[in-house]
Design a binder for these strands. Structure first.
Lengths: 140, 140
DNA sequence: ATGGTTGTAACAAGAGAAGTTACAACTACA
DNA sequence: TGTAGTTGTAACTTCTCTTGTTACAACCAT
């Protein structure tokens, strides 16, 4: 199991917008060229980012812009915008209540799963778009 | 995207083995009954746990046993036994090297992805089967 | 030998990811 | 007012993975 590439594509999109929005119009075709995927994929992900109020899109005329400063956009925001699942883990639905383990497994595991997911999300929350942009500039 | 239920099923399997291995034979049919899935699913996951040297299985006669003390089995061991993917994230493969972002995105993001994954795995490593067993006993 | 068990192959159904084509709706601008 | 470039979205295909299922050979204590 892996997360879909939507997350890394969305991050790529945001980096491109942050880098180029003041220089020229950032269209789905331009982004698709940089990422090397179909423009429709980009438009769908841009739609998710727009719904999450991370970007703004000019319909008709075209072009995407950051909806807030890059310091205020974290990888967690991006992740939540493109991955809709509430829980990271798919718990088997119907354990047998006649078995002592089947009866208690949920109450034992649910908070563990939450803790694990929180650890991952906490790490994501610490990484901002501005930091990624700075590092990208350093490597160029 | 969610992890498959193999992880929670594997944990359920181990809890059952730890709880019942001294009382009676723990077969795939017994486990399937507690988890409420097909015995073949259980046998496949048991096979992964066996390859990872977490359990031992008696072929022919039947029955599964912990291969080491429950204090030495962590959720990370279980996770790695049943989820074969090396990286948590699927990175889009061919960013355009002619774009400054496309050229640098991998070197910027690769260590972030690793950090995020490590945070998740670190949390898993802290949770042992013996702790889950203790909590299950308390709730019974 | 028999019966209960494991290990696996083979198959089907369903979900989701990713790619593609097509086209209506929108907006600036000539 | 058209027109060109763009977005939003529907529809379809192809793949892969998950889950469920049947079937059966191999195994081993009794």
């Amino acid at each position: 199991m892996q997360f879909s590439s939507r997350f890394t594509i969305a991050t790529h999109i945001l980096l491109c917008i942050a880098m180029f929005q003041d220089e020229h119009k950032v269209t789905s075709n331009f982004l698709a060229g940089s990422i090397n995927v179909n423009p429709v994929i980009v438009r769908n992900i841009l739609g998710s980012l727009s719904s999450a109020k991370i970007v703004e899109i000019k319909p008709g005329v075209g072009g995407a812009f950051l909806a807030k400063p890059s310091e205020e956009i974290t990888l967690l925001d991006v992740f939540k915008a493109v991955e809709k699942e509430e829980s990271l883990f798919h718990f088997h639905e119907n354990p047998n209540p006649e078995c002592p383990i089947g009866r208690t497994i949920h109450s034992v595991m649910d908070d563990k799963i939450e803790t694990i997911q929180s650890a991952m999300e906490g790490e994501m929350k610490d990484i901002t778009l501005s930091r990624l942009l700075r590092e990208a500039n350093e490597k160029m």
